[in-house]
């Protein structure tokens, strides 16, 4: 975008953004797989397996996906805080 600006600050910001997008990409894939993948699209396949009295596809749709969402958000927050510091772009 800003080809004329070659200052260090701008390069750092661009590299930081790229690192952020990579983490985002991985997280969004997991987000999709645990809900739409295992809970909806592949539900019949997954339902052939069970954990306890739960059919696995049903479990992902009504329990597992939610646990995975919580874990994902905390993982992203933790990873990004680390990346913030690596690029020296953290607050304070």
């Amino acid at each position: 975008m800003q080809s004329t600006d070659t200052s260090g600050a701008s390069r750092t910001a661009a590299a930081y953004w790229k690192a952020n997008l990579q983490v985002l990409f991985i997280c969004m894939i997991i987000w999709f797989v645990v809900s739409y993948g295992l809970g909806i699209l592949l539900v019949d396949v997954m339902n052939q397996f069970t954990i306890g009295g739960y059919k696995l596809g049903f479990w992902f749709a009504q329990q597992g996906s939610i646990y995975a969402f919580v874990a994902l958000i905390f993982f992203y927050a933790w990873r990004m805080n680390k990346i913030d510091r690596e690029f020296d772009l953290q607050e304070d």
Partner: peptide
């Protein structure tokens, strides 16, 4: 399940 996943997955 649409409500369970829909109303929590939005937070991601």
């Amino acid at each position: 399940s649409v409500y369970l996943m829909g109303w929590t997955g939005g937070y991601v």
